[in-house]
């Protein structure tokens, strides 16, 4: 088990390097030297040069001039030598920033790591309750519907799911906001920093649950149906167990395998937040930050967010595989 985890962690290295290469090409090579843009229209050449040096735009993309690096090792010691090596090319700088989680400053001169840390809290307070509630609701309903398969209840639920899936996500937000926040005035329309976050996230959480009901219920219903048709379910009923025990013990434990995949893989998205919900309700989370950065062409923030997302996905994929062993005794780590 430990050996397996260590091996999987080593596999992460080439993946992370690959991700860094892609983000580097996307944001630095294609994005280009934007020091003039940061400095502003009326900045003098000196300021532009300063900014260019700060972001490393004056360095080559990949190739490092080794002569000054060697000199730096000789004269200022190992630490300074390493520093000048990693600042020697734009890619190495990009690499070092990502690995040390030091992404520098955004276009508005605020530290990116600060921005991200500020956004995590609001994002999680929106997505975590939304995710847990919709998970419990969809799985319980899916079990019930799978048990009633073939009946009018089942058919009605599937039809409702298809309807819910056919409605664009945006419509849920706009109509929800219009009816419950504006017309009925039950919830705030927009986040107000003077009020507690918990009050502002209620409506977006409810909207998120309703919107996830359609696809979630259909997915879990299929998972449950696959299990409910198994022979061991018949054995469990033949033992004299009640439908409740058969469903919530025997079927659910088996269905955990696809459920775990689905759940763990959606966890990185929880951290990132919900782009649309945060934007519409003015919740200053990571989704909001992302949308803002796209609108403001802030490649530095986007680069940092993309890297963090990729890293989270790689880590959670490993977690999924470890969780399999926990839910399925047939899985063994070799």
């Amino acid at each position: 088990m430990t050996a397996y985890i260590i091996r999987r962690l080593l596999y992460m290295i080439p993946i992370v390097v690959g991700v860094l290469l892609i983000t580097f090409v996307l944001f630095t090579v294609i994005g280009g030297d934007i020091s003039q843009q940061i400095a502003g229209k009326n900045a003098d050449a000196e300021t532009v040069a300063e900014i260019r040096a700060e972001y490393g735009f004056d360095k080559p993309y990949f190739k490092v001039e080794m002569a000054p690096v060697r000199e730096s090792f000789k004269e200022d010691g190992f630490k300074a030598g390493m520093k000048s090596f990693f600042e020697g090319s734009q890619f190495l700088r990009h690499f070092k920033n990502a690995v040390t989680f030091n992404f520098g400053r955004a276009m508005d001169r605020q530290k990116i790591s600060e921005k991200i840390l500020q956004g995590v809290g609001p994002s999680l307070s929106l997505t975590v309750p939304m995710f847990i509630a919709s998970l419990i609701i969809t799985i319980s309903l899916a079990l019930a519907v799978a048990f009633l398969r073939g009946t009018a209840w089942d058919f009605g639920t599937v039809v409702l799911c298809v309807i819910l899936m056919s409605v664009p996500y945006l419509s849920f937000i706009i109509f929800g906001q219009y009816i419950f926040a504006y017309k009925l005035d039950l919830f705030p329309i927009y986040y107000n920093p003077t009020e507690p976050m918990s009050f502002s996230v209620i409506l977006p959480i409810l909207i998120g649950i309703v919107a996830s009901l359609g696809p979630g219920l259909r997915f879990y219903r299929t998972v449950m149906l696959d299990e409910i048709r198994s022979d061991y379910v018949r054995t469990a009923f033949a033992k004299g167990l009640t439908a409740r025990v058969v469903l919530f013990k025997h079927v659910l434990k088996n269905a955990m395998i696809p459920i775990v995949t689905n759940v763990v893989m959606s966890l990185p998205r929880l951290v990132l937040g919900s782009l649309l919900l945060e934007r519409f309700f003015g919740i200053p989370g990571l989704g909001y930050l992302m949308v803002e950065s796209i609108a403001g062409r802030d490649f530095f923030v986007l680069n940092a967010m993309t890297f963090m997302m990729a890293l989270l996905i790689v880590i959670f994929t490993l977690l999924t595989d470890i969780c399999y062993a926990w839910v399925d005794p047939r899985v063994k780590f070799e």
């Binding site: 198994s230 061991y232 033992k239």
Partner: peptide, 25 residues
Amino acid sequence: MREIRGNDIAMIFQEPMTSLNPVFT
């Protein structure tokens, strides 16, 4: 019926490979 099933009338099935629940001992 649930009292009778498994207690007074028990049943074994054709497919021993799949009739037991794979995730319980």
